[in-house]
């Protein structure tokens, strides 16, 4: 059997080390390896300062590793130049941040449309896809509102809609529930879960809150820039799971 027939992982983090340029020179990540599969709903767990954001930023091509490399579908993407990295994020990745995700001068609808505008999607198609995404997060009725007139939970749902509107390979969410109360946070995770389940959106999110971990189908725990259990870093084959 040739190698090619075995579908490789969607994302491969290979021996990645990140040292932020500062006096202390502490490694935020040291020699971390992990793989992620399409269709996953995975949580990166760990205490504050353990390196969750750093890892998500590296996977999201927002930052560059000091050592090691990151591959998407076997292609090395770490160390792209800034414009190429931006293009890659635009075409293949969705982002949800902890807070202040949205552009305040644009309406919910326009925020969701924005990545599509940058992609050059025609206005009709753009509208349709943005409305569809808003409908999926249950905010169709708020399409014309500016972020300031939306609740924190609604804003995060608009951010989810923006992240999925461009149909990315994966949505990266750094502590998406940290700024929400536990009930709203749980609702947001429910939404993400159903998008994963019903629409096949791949999610990789981080949280320092142990309460949200049971929602995840897979948990990768980090501590001091390393995996707590290196075995957790290896993605199971979801398809094999299903067939089996």
């Amino acid at each position: 059997m040739s190698e090619r027939l075995i579908p490789g992982p969607l994302i491969e983090v290979r021996d990645v080390t990140k040292i932020y340029p500062s006096e202390a020179q502490v490694a935020a990540l040291s020699g971390l390896s992990a793989t992620f599969q399409a269709g996953e709903f995975t949580a990166i767990a760990g205490p504050s300062g353990s390196g969750k954001s750093t890892l998500l930023n590296l996977i999201g091509l927002i930052d560059e590793p000091t050592e090691g490399e990151i591959l998407y579908q076997g292609r090395k993407v770490s160390c792209l130049d800034p414009a190429a990295a931006a293009d890659f994020r635009l075409r293949h990745l969705g982002f949800i941040f902890q807070a202040y995700n949205l552009i305040p001068v644009l309406t919910a609808m326009e925020n969701v449309e924005y990545p599509l505008i940058l992609q050059g999607v025609g206005s009709e198609e753009r509208r349709r896809r943005a409305l569809e995404a808003l409908r999926l997060v249950g905010l169709e009725a708020f399409a014309g509102r500016r972020p300031a007139l939306l609740s924190g939970g609604q804003q995060q749902r608009v951010a989810v809609a923006r992240a999925i509107a461009a149909r990315p390979l994966i949505v990266l969410a750094d502590e998406p529930t940290a700024n929400l109360d536990s009930k709203t946070g749980a609702q947001l995770l429910d939404l993400m879960q159903s998008l994963n389940h019903d629409n096949g959106v791949t999610f990789l999110f981080s949280s320092h809150d142990p309460a949200v971990l049971p929602c995840a189908r897979r948990v990768v725990r980090v501590h001091d820039g390393r995996l707590v259990d290196p075995a957790e870093g290896v993605a199971q084959d979801l398809d094999a799971d299903r067939v089996g």
Binding site: G60, I62, P82, A83, A86, D87, R89, L90, R91, L93, G94, F95, F97, Y100, N101, L102, I103, P104, Y114, P115, L118, Q119, R162
Partner: peptide, 16 residues
């Protein structure tokens, strides 16, 4: 600055 960060994260090039 943060807003520019978000714009860049969702795929806006530096030049843009």
């Amino acid at each position: 600055v943060r807003e520019f960060g978000v714009l860049m994260a969702i795929g806006a090039r530096p030049r843009w």
